[in-house]
Amino acid sequence: MENGFCNNIKPLISAYFDDELSSGENDLVRSHIDSCPECADELENIKNLSGIIKNSFKNTGYKLDIASVVISKLDGMHICNDVAEKLSPYIDRELDKKELSAISEHLLSCNHCRREYENLKEIQSAVKNYLENIDNHSSHKIAEGVINRIKKQERRLEYLKSTAALFIIALLSWFSINTISPFNAKINDKARLVSLDKSAYLRSEDFLFTKVYSSPPEGAISTIYEED
């Protein structure tokens, strides 16, 4: 077969051997291998190699008894669960003396928890390092990025707020126009409503300055008419 086509097939032979190709690719490779001795050889090589590797793995003897060690630690496992929860405050020294020393003692004898402790410490110091060593230039960029995002969010919030406020005002005005009776009376279109709440209106001095009504509002003590 042409060498060009072989170059397309060769990288697929490993996956073909593992039976991990799509059915289309599978058929393609199979039919090519049937007629190409070079690629058939390649498949044979991979097959042999895989056998050798698998054998070598199988022949690795094992003379230990790790299982017994692990089994002997199973009883104390619930202690480890407790300790795991307290590791972070332990590192920050935010436990009382009794707990601190109990955990220190446990860490001395328990490899598992000591590993977890060391991992946690590594992470914490890596974070600290990162924060302390941020390059000025990159910290500027980071700060800028953060500020821009906050600005965007604030703008969005402002927009939402003003929309909501307008909506509420519109709702309230509609509501009060429809329910407060004096204002249901015919109103001269030059009248200006200063206060929407009737009693508050009467209490305030604003009513002294309002313009003409066709009939005075209920409970009005006096009405002042102003010529326009």
Binding site: I52, I53, N55, S56, N59, T60, G61, Y62, K63, L64
Partner: peptide
């Protein structure tokens, strides 16, 4: 440490290769 046994020489070679 004597924790494991090694197989044949080919096994050793492939182990090295890996």
């Amino acid at each position: 440490p004597e924790e494991r046994t090694l197989g044949s020489e080919l096994d050793t070679k492939i182990k090295e290769a890996i």
